[in-house]
Amino acid sequence: MLPEIVVLGTGGTISAVADARGRNGAGLSAGEIVTGAGALDEIAVIRSGDVRRIPGRAMTPQDMHDIALRVGAEVAAGCSGVVITHGTDTIEETVYALALMLDVPVPVVMTGAMRLPADPGHDGGANLRTAVVAATRRDLAAFGPLLAFGDELHLARWVTKQHTSRPAAFASPETGPAGVVVEGRVLMNAPPADSDHLGLPDSLGGTRVELVWIYAGADGALIEAAAERADGIVVAGTGGGHTPPSVAEAIGAVVAGGTPVVVASRCAAGPTLHDTYGGPGGEAHLRGLGAVHAGRLPALKARLRLQVALALGRDVREVFPR
């Protein structure tokens, strides 16, 4: 008996349809995407539905929360796995948001496309097939939500979009892919890692976390502006998690005022440091001011982790351990 896999559509390039001027936007339903992929019924019994039909750039944390709710409902209804199609602009964020909010006993696999459905060599069908194959492997649930792209499977924590337009757009700089799909078989490279799961809040719509990118010559103006509206701030610091002295001063004032600040690195890979550099803006100084460092978590994902943690009422230091 074949497993039942639910394919949920949210939009993106994999669903794109051109308008009269030849400009593409989300249009195809999940069912149409499944039909276009062909021969998936040899792998699983496919059931499809749509959660959104929007471009990846329009995705919000509340949309991600709604996707998590829908996944939970499909799992409760008895499916064997869930595949989610999504725009690639923000897919690395959504897959990590789901890792934070979902703890389900079946595989959850996200995928998308870099080439338009009408283009020669459209990759959406092949990526969807890879995702469905992975979703039939019940043991992959232990890895948390995965991203399937170009026959590779990536962990939510590490995967990032590294190129704007190439089909091989995704990579995990810290670890490489967690697995591959070859000849219809899943081959994993390592055992499951620690879970990123925090819990499913009632909503993410009422919790705002801003991301401030640090550059040479930055001052505290953006930190101060963010603190006026945000419930928390993530700083993408230089190197091992550093800021200019004036930014550090602003961080200290913001933390003292009750707004949590998490410092990540703007680098593509590597952890924030703990006790190597002193002086204003060094990691030891920022820690002394009350900032929390993100460790190996990239800034985009640290922002989501802080947002979910605050929405759950969790202690920030607890969810960003050293």
Rank of each mutant, 00 (worst) to 15 (best):
G9W: 12
E42W: 15
H274S: 14
V181D: 10
Y96H: 09
R52T: 03
V182F: 04
R53Q: 05
I223L: 06
H293G: 07
T276Y: 03
P173C: 05
G124S: 10
H86R: 11
A77Y: 11
G112F: 14
P177F: 02
R157H: 02
G56P: 05
Y215K: 10
D66Q: 13
I233V: 03
A291K: 07
T238S: 15
R115D: 05
T90V: 09
Y277W: 06
A225P: 10
V109Y: 09
R70L: 13
P244G: 08
G72N: 14
D19R: 02
A218R: 10
V7D: 01
V108K: 06
L300H: 01
L312K: 05
A168Y: 15
E224L: 04
T207V: 04
E174Y: 07
H65K: 04
L312I: 07
G239N: 08
S15P: 14
G25D: 02
G240R: 02
G12P: 14
D103S: 15
H65A: 13
K301I: 01
A141M: 12
G56L: 06
V95Q: 01
D41S: 10
V182R: 05
V133N: 02
A76S: 13
G25Y: 06
V186R: 09
G176K: 09
D50F: 13
A299R: 02
V104C: 11
R208L: 12
N127F: 14
A76D: 15
R70F: 14
A20M: 11
G144A: 01
D275S: 14
T160Y: 02
P107K: 00
H163N: 10
A309T: 03
A20N: 08
A97F: 11
P191M: 00
R287D: 07
E152G: 06
L146A: 05
G12H: 05
L128E: 08
G22S: 10
G78F: 07
G22A: 11
A131C: 13
W213G: 15
W213A: 12
H285D: 10
P167M: 14
L200K: 03
R21D: 13
L222T: 04
L102D: 13
A156H: 00
F170S: 11
V83E: 09
A58S: 15
L128F: 08
R115N: 07
G56D: 05
A269W: 06
G220M: 09
Y215V: 09
R137V: 03
A39D: 12
R296H: 05
T272Y: 03
V71N: 15
P280D: 07
L146Q: 09
V319W: 05
M188T: 13
A99H: 08
C79R: 09
F149E: 03
F143L: 00
R138P: 04
E249I: 02
R129H: 04
D119C: 10
D103I: 12
P177A: 05
A299S: 00
A18L: 10
L153T: 02
I233L: 03
L304D: 01
M59D: 12
V261Q: 01
R208S: 05
V182E: 00
S48R: 00
